[in-house]
Amino acid sequence: MLRYKSKTVSKLEKQVEEHIENMSDEQLFSFAEYDRDRSEKTAYSNYSYWKSTFRAFRKNKVAVALVWVVLGILLFTLIQPFLPGQYDPNYINNDTSGLQFRNIEPCSQFWFGTNSIGQDLWARIWAGTRNSMMIGICVAMIEALIGIVVGVLWGYVRKLDWFFTEIYNILDNIPNTIILILISYIMKPGVPTLIFAMCLTRWIQMARFIRNQVLIIRDREYNLASRCVGTPTQKIITRNLLPYLVSVIMLRMALTVPEAIGNEVFITYIGLGLPTNIPSLGRLIDDGRQLMMSASLRYQLIFPTIVVSIVTISFYIIGNAFSDAADPKNHIS
């Protein structure tokens, strides 16, 4: 293509040629030692899945802020009882005549007011948040653990499909309320009962969700390839499948916490909730709900609702942001 070669260029060419001719064979070729580290560098040299995930996550400022909010709330519920001037959430405050401080609107003494028997709502809300969050997180962890193990096996090991499908059919079709009510008959109403009752049927939902995802991904080409090469099932599951599922699992887990709180509201609503001496967001909301028609008492509903909303919103946005970040495809661009 070049029609014109300048003099300097042809001069340079000549010099290079001469230089090479003067070199010995050893100088020209040498055997490279096999180096594991360097050989890895060829592909995505410095790619680490989790590092990239966190880097992508940190870019979402709102989500990061909300992580601090959730951590802050969690921390505060834990230290709140030890702060000075706090009431016991179950303590009934009486006035000088010995009668209860009933339905006191928020004031300097009772920051969030009192309920109909004079218990301090500020203390009850934080104690309730502590209990409800704990229930939610426990349920999410148990659900994820059992759900992932069962779901991956279910989706990947074809021989197990009918077995789990049958279990699913049975578990999923016994209405939740029957199980909840039966458990409340057998066990004492309390936090472990609630966690147990919710996990008893929830894990199968998670498992089925994972199974469906696996079913979709399982027959993708890269998995076919792995299988052809003879990669063991276990390795395919942990290397090829799970990272892909992380985004969905995280979203589901993040949503389980608020859902568990919602469930608790429902269970309280049908009259099987926690006893009053264990404050919970569900109990507070159900109590407040009954006062909704009276405008001046709505503070009893609004405060717990705000807490529930903040917790839910935080988990929702964090979950979504994290699942975006955890998707390997979003790492390259």
Binding site: R102, N103, S116, R289, Q290, M292, M293, S294, A295, L297
Partner: peptide, 24 residues
Amino acid sequence: TLAPEMVKRGEVDYADIGSEILDD
């Protein structure tokens, strides 16, 4: 919950007024 509200709207002729909303 609803009967007190319906009393206000004149849709029923009877409602229990619970102690929670009584003061209000």
